[in-house]
Design a protein around this nucleic acid. Structure first.
Length: 850
DNA sequence: CACAGTAGCGCG
DNA sequence: AAAGCGCGCTACTGTG
């Protein structure tokens, strides 16, 4: 039934309004959407609600926007006016009991608050009715990762309507707020075989001086004379109302004494909690991370404990503002802390069942993800040693360099000749007579720098290289990226461009490397990163700061260090190294992705080259340039061979190839040359295109692709109506199994190396520092280098292990190159003979001489 | 002043 | 018609 409103939209004054409501007008249950839904959309929503148990014949569906215009766009204020005029009277006409708002506009109209991501899943009140909101179904369609949270909100709403409970009982728990209760907790721990643990902290990283743990909670599976049962407890620590505020570290140490026998440790994003706990003396290493299990099963989905628990268990949103834990009453903090572990327990039981249904994912989770997490925790806790002496010497050099470059820019741009009436008024300056004395001039890609280049110096703007179009429709800012500057340099030869190009690097070195390094190294001269095992969609690790949500008290201002983007420039990379008496060892896979692609495509020519210890960049360069291999210099190999192999392999077109070849390697290809290069490339390796076609077919058929190990990449974009988006998904389907498997090989090697070192009792003499995708870095005590590097090389090249543990047969040799030195990037690469017969004399004599 | 979005660049 | 893939951090801009 459609309700007619026979008046014109008062706000747009152009179109008629119509209610667009569907369902009984007097329904006690109302679903408010942003806009009128199409029939298809409405059907999907109906079905979803029905499946979750809602009787939709008793529901009124109605949109906020009643205007007939399709592209109506209202400010928040106008939207509320619109709602007050049309929607709210419609709601008020009959008594309502439950209102579901889908989308921010619906939330704003009914509740008067904007911020759907913040307020979703929370219960509000509107004239006696319970109001629950969630993101709009169309947002979920565009971004499937939103789905768990969305379903969670719908479940919550429907549970309320039907008066059904979640099925998850409330936990009863002990609060260790006295010595007596603390003793009870010790007893629980003594009988615990599996612990589900969670901590709350202040807004610091664990290794910082003023870091503090606010509370700790756990759900334990204990075994006693009555059999197996659950026990839950919470321990107040640094909180102002805690009896242990000044002794929180001592309390943790005591708890730690009762944990040594615990076999299974479960946490959500365990890396965070366990690093804190281990740092504080509770040696709990995770055996099951609920977040990582979820990520292994679906890399696109929201993996926060809250949306997962809400979607899976149907529980209501719980939580407090973690930014102000110390100002929240202790009882609330502990209750919140307990619920985290309690719901984690129930979620984990479900995850175990789901893992049983996909044994390849289960195998990745058990034998790759979790062991890697335990090893990485150790790497992160130890940190990477930084040569503070070098840092102190080099930072002033970098600063002086930047200052020199900026003085050159000032001169080359003739900034002291700018007339007062032309000088941009928002740039701080002094006027002395008819002279301008500027200060705080910003040469970064700022409005001032754009003014300087394109207004004052009148350099030509490339209209194809502009930023986002302005809101008022004006043209976007001209780009100032390197590529644009390089072209400007070639066209104008203006000296200021050279200095601007030089400045970008100098500035980056200071702001992204020297400054954070100096700020973040600890008392042992170590930098701590966080490696995320759920940071990418392919299975690679990412590196950076700790989970920003957990550090939210600092409002995202927390800095971190990414050990995977340290510049190769020895001036920076050489800041890292091994402390005196130790050696820095880098072991990296040689062309791992090309080898894997050759394996996956069963590419005969590539396989032949690798089987004969050939050089694929060289072969490619020779074929494409038409030169004999003997005439391919190192330079041609780098400038021609590399960009072709890495680009075309993953579906790059010839236009993009011209760009990247110019930007990355400075080599100029004409359109004809680029097109020819692409054709020659695929003639040279004829099995590559059929392999591309196979990946495209697979992703179109299944919406996902699988790596040799069984790692899944879901690519819902393949169903997009946009052809460009679909083709992007196809290229991702080509790249993902290669990139993911390469990364998995490195992770497996790291695990195996660490395992062997532990078995030999050498783990105190050789430490893994972390992974850089296809490279593993170590610090090894000098007297153990010769004994450890063969282990590293063996494990990385070990295809037997890959077969035995994961059932993958690789018929291409995999090579790991090992280099040693005092600092990272010292480039003392060892031959295979030297690795297996390594004598320390090589290190400083022979190799340096060579 | 905080926040979100974007540009730019570091790495593989 | 054409479109390499995967990340994290800093700085700047516009908005409120």
């Amino acid at each position: 039934m459609v309700i007619q409103l026979d008046n014109q939209c008062l706000l747009c004054a152009e179109h008629d309004v119509e209610s667009y409501a569907i369902g009984p007008r007097d329904a006690k249950i109302v679903v408010v959407t942003n806009r009128k839904s199409s029939g298809r959309f409405q059907d999907a929503l109906d079905l979803q609600l029905k499946e979750l148990g809602l009787d939709i014949t008793q529901v009124l569906f109605t949109p906020v926007i009643k205007c007939r215009s399709f592209d109506v766009s209202l400010s928040n204020k106008r939207l509320r006016e619109h709602a007050a005029r049309y929607l709210l009277p419609e709601l008020d006409r009959y008594p309502r009991e439950f209102i579901l708002c889908l989308g921010n506009e619906a939330l704003l109209a009914v509740v008067g608050k904007s911020g759907i991501t913040k307020y979703r899943g929370k219960t509000f009140e509107y004239k006696g009715a319970d109001v629950i909101s969630s993101v709009s179904p169309s947002a979920v369609n565009r971004n499937p990762g939103q789905k768990p949270g969305y379903i969670a909100d719908l479940r919550l709403f429907i549970n309320k309507v039907n008066g059904t409970a979640t099925g998850i009982p409330d936990p009863k728990y002990i609060v260790a707020d006295s010595k007596e209760n603390l003793r009870k907790v010790f007893k629980i721990l003594d009988m615990t075989e599996e612990i589900y643990i969670d901590i709350e902290t202040n807004s610091k990283e664990y290794y910082q001086d003023d870091a503090a743990m606010v509370s700790l909670a756990a759900t334990c599976v204990v075994v006693d004379s009555f059999g197996k049962h659950r026990a839950v407890f919470a321990v107040p620590l640094f909180h102002p109302q805690s009896p242990w505020r000044s002794q929180w570290r001592e309390i943790l140490r005591l708890l730690g004494l009762h944990c040594n026998h615990i076999k299974r440790v479960v946490a959500h994003n365990a890396s965070f909690d366990c690093k804190w706990l281990i740092w504080c003396g509770m040696k709990l290493y995770p055996t099951f991370d609920t977040m990582l299990a979820i990520h292994n099963m679906d890399e696109n989905i929201q993996r926060g404990l809250k949306p997962q628990a809400m979607a899976r268990l149907g529980v209501e949103s719980w939580g407090i503002d973690t930014g102000s834990l110390l100002r929240t009453p202790i009882a609330e903090v502990l209750h919140y802390n307990v619920l985290d572990t309690w719901y984690m327990y129930w979620v984990k039981q479900q995850l175990v069942e789901e893992l049983k249904k996909d044994l390849r994912i289960a195998r990745i989770f058990k034998f790759l993800t979790m062991p890697a997490q335990r090893d990485l925790i150790n790497s992160e806790l130890r940190g990477a040693w930084i040569d503070v002496k070098r840092l102190k010497e080099r930072k002033p050099i970098a600063e002086a360099n930047l200052a020199r470059i900026e003085a050159n820019i000032f001169k080359a741009a003739k900034l002291d000749e700018v007339p007062t009436d032309v000088w941009p008024h928002n740039v701080k300056h002094l006027v002395r007579g008819d002279k301008i004395i500027p200060w705080e001039v910003n040469f970064n890609a700022s409005n001032f720098a754009r003014w300087m280049l394109f207004d004052w110096l009148e350099l030509p703007i490339n209209d194809e290289q502009r930023g986002k179009v302005k809101e008022d429709g004006g043209p976007g800012n001209p780009s100032m990226k390197e590529e644009v500057l390089l072209h400007l340099q070639a066209e104008t030869h203006h000296p200021v461009i050279d200095h601007m190009l030089e400045r970008v690097t100098a500035q980056k070195h200071l702001s992204s490397f020297f400054n954070p390094y100096e700020e973040l190294y600890d008392e042992n001269h170590r930098l701590h990163t966080t490696f995320k095992l759920a940071g990418t969609v392919t299975g690679r690790l990412s590196s950076g700061k700790s989970d920003p949500d957990k550090i939210s008290g600092s409002r995202g201002k927390m800095r971190g260090v990414n050990l995977q983007q340290v510049p190769r420039d020895p001036f920076i990379r050489g800041l890292f190294g091994a402390p005196p008496g130790w050696t820095f060892v880098e072991a990296d896979y040689s062309q791992i992705e090309l080898r894997i692609a050759a394996y996956l495509a069963d590419e005969t020519t590539m396989k032949h080259i690798y089987a004969n210890n050939g050089d694929i960049h060289l072969s490619t360069a020779a074929r494409v340039t038409g030169l004999p291999e003997s005439q391919i210099t190192k330079e041609i190999r780098k400038v021609v061979g590399k960009p072709i192999n890495f680009g075309f392999l993953y579906g790059m077109g010839w236009r993009k190839f011209i760009e990247t070849a110019f930007n990355n390697y400075g080599s100029v290809f004409t359109e004809a040359e680029a097109q020819a290069a692409r054709i020659v490339y695929f003639q040279l390796y004829p099995k590559l295109l059929p392999w591309h076609a196979k990946q495209r077919r697979l992703v179109n058929e299944y919406g996902r692709v699988v790596s040799p190990l069984g790692r899944i990449r879901h690519l819902p974009d393949i169903y997009s109506p946009d052809r460009g988006v679909r083709m992007e998904a196809e290229r991702q389907a080509i790249n993902s199994p290669v990139q993911g498997f390469g990364s998995d090989m490195a992770v497996i090697a790291m695990i195996e190396i660490n395992r062997r070192l532990r078995e030999l009792g050498w783990d105190q003499y050789a430490h893994c520092l972390g992974l850089v995708h296809d490279a593993i870095n170590f610090e090894i005590r000098d007297d153990y280098v010769s004994r450890v590097i063969p282990i590293i090389k063996d494990c990385m090249e070990d295809l037997d292990h890959l077969y035995r543990r994961f059932g993958v047969v690789i018929d291409i040799p995999i090579i790991a190159d090992v280099s040693v030195g005092q600092h990272w990037g010292d480039k003392l690469e060892l031959t295979a003979e030297q690795v297996y017969d390594f004598d320390l004399k090589y290190k400083y004599e022979k190799l340096k001489a060579a």
